[in-house]
Design a protein around this nucleic acid. Sequence first.
DNA 1: ATTCTGACTTGCT
DNA 2: AAGCAAGCCAGAA
Length: 131
Amino acid sequence: MREDYQEAVLAAAELIAPGKVLAYGDIAELLGTGGPRQVGAVMARSGNAVPWWRVIRASGEPPACDGGRAWDHYVAENTPVRGRPSADGTGYRVRITEARWQPSDAEWEVLDGLRRGLEAAAGSGQPGEPG
DNA sequence: ATTCTGACTTGCT
DNA sequence: AAGCAAGCCAGAA
């Protein structure tokens, strides 16, 4: 469970609509596997290949690595934010309560598919998986 | 097996 | 709003 989980997280991140955002924990919830740290760990591995700026903390703070880069994306996608970026790249916060991405029925099927794939992979090797 | 760490989250003060 | 501590899950040494 490494590449599968990674692909699932990346896929979910790509599903996120522009101007919207999702918390690490939210993606973990959608996938139903691991936790916010696992999602972040994946982003650190291949987040550069997906709209990582749409994946932030549950507090609305930008990513801990390239928060400064995220700002440009937020202003470009008209993402609801509060305050402005400071010299540290932080100082502002995304109104996650309004920018919280809400997957549609079609997108839910995709996320659900990813989740099932992970669940199946998790049982791949275990002799007694409930089914 | 144990210990340490990490793009995290939540509760308390 | 800001700081500290505990919880969570998985990877690496």
